[in-house]
């Protein structure tokens, strides 16, 4: 399994974005930019997603939604914050309902700057996320293998 390249699935969640970054994420998935040529696929289901793209900052309403989405995704997982809103809160940082960037509630691996983030930048972020995902899944596989080996050895040691 370790040598197989993965094709991670993307999940996009709109935090409290102004739509600008949202539609740029969508645009980078359409054939003009076509992020899918790097082996990713868009999905709407967190249970099958590997990479979470968050646009927009975190507010009191969606804090739990984002946390839950992250929890529902299977391990290993990668989080990409798209746009300055998702990175830090952006122009809305001082609003009473904005708690800050996505890293307030989930660990963010890759930050894509821009307001609105350009499709080229988003694709760059996705490629980095794919590489990171590959790395993490190899680590994950190794861990599982080690645990299995350890599990097999254990009864022998006892007997």
């Amino acid at each position: 399994m370790a040598n197989i390249k993965r094709s991670p699935w993307l999940l996009h969640y709109d935090g409290s974005s102004c739509n600008g970054c949202d539609i740029e994420v969508l645009a980078s998935l359409t054939p003009v930019y076509d992020a899918e040529r790097f082996g990713v696929m868009n999905t709407g289901d967190p249970l099958q997603a590997d990479i979470l793209l968050i646009t927009g900052g975190i507010n009191t309403q969606n804090r739990d939604v984002v946390k839950q989405l992250y929890k529902q995704m299977p391990r290993p997982k990668v989080v990409v914050a798209v746009g300055v809103c998702a990175c830090t809160g952006g122009v809305f940082k001082d609003c009473y309902n904005i708690l800050g960037g996505a890293d307030e509630v989930v660990p963010v691996d890759i930050y894509v700057p821009g307001c609105a983030a350009r499709p080229q930048a988003i694709i760059d972020g996705i490629i980095q996320a794919v590489e990171l995902f590959q790395q993490r899944s190899e680590e994950h596989d190794r861990l599982v293998r080690d645990m299995k080996a350890w599990g097999k050895r254990k009864p022998k040691a006892e007997s």
């Binding site: 709109d14 409290s16 974005s17 927009g56 309403q61 001082d94 609003c95 009473y96 309902n97």
Partner: peptide, 14 residues
């Protein structure tokens, strides 16, 4: 509604 409420109008004071 209310999932993407940011409170943008309040920035007028800031």
């Amino acid at each position: 509604v209310g999932f993407i409420h940011r409170g943008l109008e309040s920035l007028a004071a800031k």
